[in-house]
Design a protein around this nucleic acid. Sequence first.
DNA 1: CATGAATGAGGGTTCATTCAT
DNA 2: GATGAATGAACCCTCATTCAT
Lengths: 195, 195, 195, 195
Amino acid sequence: MTTRTRERDKREALLRAARDVLVEEGYHHAKIDEIAQRAGVAKGTYYLYFKDKRAIFAELVDGLVARIESAIVRVDERADLGAQVRHNIRATIAVLAEDPPLARIVLGPTSGLDAAFTDTVTRMHVGVVSLLSRTLRDGQSLGVVAEGDTDLLAMFAVGALKEAVLRSEELGPARREQLVTELARFLEKGFLRLR
Amino acid sequence: MTTRTRERDKREALLRAARDVLVEEGYHHAKIDEIAQRAGVAKGTYYLYFKDKRAIFAELVDGLVARIESAIVRVDERADLGAQVRHNIRATIAVLAEDPPLARIVLGPTSGLDAAFTDTVTRMHVGVVSLLSRTLRDGQSLGVVAEGDTDLLAMFAVGALKEAVLRSEELGPARREQLVTELARFLEKGFLRLR
Amino acid sequence: MTTRTRERDKREALLRAARDVLVEEGYHHAKIDEIAQRAGVAKGTYYLYFKDKRAIFAELVDGLVARIESAIVRVDERADLGAQVRHNIRATIAVLAEDPPLARIVLGPTSGLDAAFTDTVTRMHVGVVSLLSRTLRDGQSLGVVAEGDTDLLAMFAVGALKEAVLRSEELGPARREQLVTELARFLEKGFLRLR
Amino acid sequence: MTTRTRERDKREALLRAARDVLVEEGYHHAKIDEIAQRAGVAKGTYYLYFKDKRAIFAELVDGLVARIESAIVRVDERADLGAQVRHNIRATIAVLAEDPPLARIVLGPTSGLDAAFTDTVTRMHVGVVSLLSRTLRDGQSLGVVAEGDTDLLAMFAVGALKEAVLRSEELGPARREQLVTELARFLEKGFLRLR
DNA sequence: CATGAATGAGGGTTCATTCAT
DNA sequence: GATGAATGAACCCTCATTCAT
């Protein structure tokens, strides 16, 4: 069991190290050697836990995507729509705020990353946008969402959110707290006719 | 004159090829050899026109940034603010729409690119956002912009614009035309109190 | 321990190979690939032991210079000057004779070598010549050295020594033994009996 | 005739440029491009006058060697030997002093230069040394040269001369004039008066 | 003859991956 | 499991040489 724990530890140490290196150097400048060193293991050990260079970063990205997806509530149109949207904004930001540097990678367009990440990230994007779009369409028939192309509206909303998160580090921590409030207000006044 | 034309041609063929390769493979996977091949010249020829690998990509990025900057009108607060904002949205989108794949690189966060690009791109970002923020602040004192943190509002607006451009290829060309209209409307209803 | 021995071995095999290649091809024609091959390792292995191409040659040159310097006794003017000079000639030749081809590189003017070597070699030269010059000046005040410009005399002596070493391979081994004796005699007496 | 003169001019301009570049950069760092530029012609023009990179440097070296050889008088043992030796020293130094940097290349051991030069330079060396050695042997039978291995003695003499020339730039011009006198005296007398 | 744009072989260096211990 | 020495494919860049104009 100690052994099993130790194994766990090494795997996680590697993941943590990989995240740091990814954030500091970017995928291509990240060296297996440095990840291993920061994790306190030998280079060869890396390959006991991960198939190749791509694998560890894929796992980091997949993990974040999964955490976002599980934080978002499937919108129930019979309940308070505004509350649900606000909750999803808040929840998404909360997950991303746990690790802003990593968030930046997942939120950004995929240029410069390998095809493997591109796919994962793109899938998440499409998923989030189409979910939101559908929600907005439902909202329109209920009369609580303004007229307009819901795909585009969803896009705008996601873009505003992404930018906010991407730049949130540049803001002082004080302003960061306003972010959720302001964003919700912005989205509401833009296309929501809540009450 | 023929000679001069040939030179021009090769330089431009290389730039075009580099753009394609950059878009398809990302900066790090882009091989000089492939750029040269696609441009129909030998590898050595590349170095007659560009100092090193970075140079050609820097030129692509700088060029787009310059085109965007020169397309944006400095906002005159005594004139019709809404019209000016709409014009800037339209103009920016127009420039970016000339080359969406390249746009994606300039608009995205800079992960995966070399420090050289990061700087250029970041400078543009900061410039655009702070320009917009200042404009909004002026708008607030004139009473045509809603209350709120103008830095955040500027961020949201830029984010929405970026996302729109980034995803504009996924939209059919028909819907792409709606983009400007919808975005303008979205921004107006969100924080502009025009009329 | 076996491991440590292997490491040592490879490093030394590389140094030996580099010496051979340097002697046979000169610095610029020397290829890392060939050094590695002759040492029986892969090209990449070279870079485990030496930072870059220059490093291995610098080490060879530095090593020889150091061996020469530690073989030379600082001249004590109160003791037998002739004996000391003879000893220094003998000791220098002995060190250089351990590896005549390498000696040729250190003794020669520095054309064709990189600035890095030039410096080391020049420093040694200047050091040896000025040491000898000072000794001769002391010798003059003691009356055991002839009148004359001691800088020039030191130069002549070093030149004769260098040439002797450089050409010593062309001599049969038998004659090589005479070298020290003859050189000492030459320096003492000259060889022309004019008038 | 004008044309012929112009051709001559270009060839000579290239040779002059090549000498400068060779002296400043060494053979391997010398670029055809720079030679052509300094000569005020296009790169392609170089190849109208010289077969390849090696050719122009070979010509420079051959020229200097030829000038040295024609300046040396074949020693006539029936005439004043001392005078002839002094003349040869003087003449050799005079030729070399016309172009000390180039001299350095010809006098130095051949490491770092291409095989082509090595051969020329070595041939000259062997020629000079064996000529001198024969002269000394003759001198011995006439009783004007001391006992000893004449090959070695010739070597020492040439070495002293070479070193003197190689370092002559470091000396002030005043001291450079002493060089011939001192060297002749050195060869006659040696400089140690031990016992 | 003169030009200089074009070529492409060649070599130094990096780093993901393997494998014997 | 753990190690880290060894490997070699990959890629940027230089520069001697050619040749169409």
